[in-house]
C-alpha cells in the first residue's frame, strides 16, 4: 500500500516537473516525456494491477493538465503499459541499452499518437517539417529521460525500509 501511494505521489511530482521544464525549440518545442517514462518504468517492474494504476494515474494527469481533448495519453499510455508488462520477464529492464531503446520508443510513440489525434481532430495544424522535428526530438528526449527517471525512482524506493513479512515484533 505504501509503495502504491508513493507511486501515485511520484507520478504527481513527475507531472509537476514536466510542466515546470521549459519546452525545447530545437526539438520542435517538445518536453522530456517524464510521465510516459514513469508509466513505462512501473509497467516493467510491477504486477498487472500496479501497472494499470500507474498508467491510469499518469494518463489522467497528463490529459487533465494538457489543453485540447482528453485522449493522447489515455490512448498511448495503456498501450505502452500493456506491451511493457507483457514482455517484462523477457527483457533486462535495468540495462542502459534497453532503457535507451525503450525511452526512444515511448518518446516516438507518444508523439506519433498525439500528432495523429491532433491532426485528425483538426486541433493542431499539420506541417511535415515540424512533425518530423517533433518525432525525432521526442525520441531523443525519451532516450535521455527514461534512464534518469528509472534510476531516480529506484534510488528513492531503496530509501524506504522493507516491511517485515512475519508480523509485529
Amino acid at each position: 500500500m505504501r509503495r502504491r501511494v508513493l507511486m501515485v505521489l511520484i507520478i504527481g511530482l513527475g507531472a509537476l516537473l514536466q510542466q515546470l521544464i521549459p519546452p525545447w525549440p530545437i526539438f520542435g518545442g517538445m518536453k522530456p516525456p517524464i510521465l510516459a517514462a514513469l508509466a513505462l518504468h512501473y509497467a516493467l517492474r510491477r504486477d498487472n494491477r500496479d501497472m494499470w494504476l500507474a498508467v491510469c494515474a499518469a494518463a489522467i494527469m497528463y490529459d487533465g493538465l494538457e489543453m485540447g481533448t482528453f485522449g493522447p495519453a489515455l490512448l498511448a499510455f495503456p498501450i505502452i503499459g500493456v506491451l511493457a508488462n507483457r514482455i517484462r520477464t523477457e527483457v533486462f529492464s535495468d540495462g542502459l541499452v534497453s532503457q535507451l531503446v525503450f525511452g526512444a520508443a515511448i518518446g516516438l510513440f507518444c508523439c506519433f499518437v498525439t500528432l495523429l489525434i491532433y491532426t485528425v481532430s483538426g486541433q493542431r495544424p499539420f506541417h511535415m517539417g515540424l512533425a518530423l522535428t517533433r518525432l525525432s526530438g521526442s525520441a531523443l528526449l525519451g532516450t535521455a529521460t527514461l534512464p534518469i527517471v528509472s534510476r531516480a525512482i529506484i534510488g528513492l524506493e531503496a530509501m524506504i525500509p522493507e516491511r517485515r513479512a512475519y508480523g509485529w515484533q
Binding site: 493538465l65 481533448t69 482528453f70
Partner: peptide, 25 residues
Amino acid sequence: LVLIAVFVPLPSLTLRAKGAARGVM
C-alpha cells in the same frame, strides 16, 4: 470508450474532468 472520449466533443464533461485534475495540482 477512449476513442469516444477523444473524438466526440464533450466540452463540459472534459472541462469538468480537467478542472478536477488541475484542482488537485
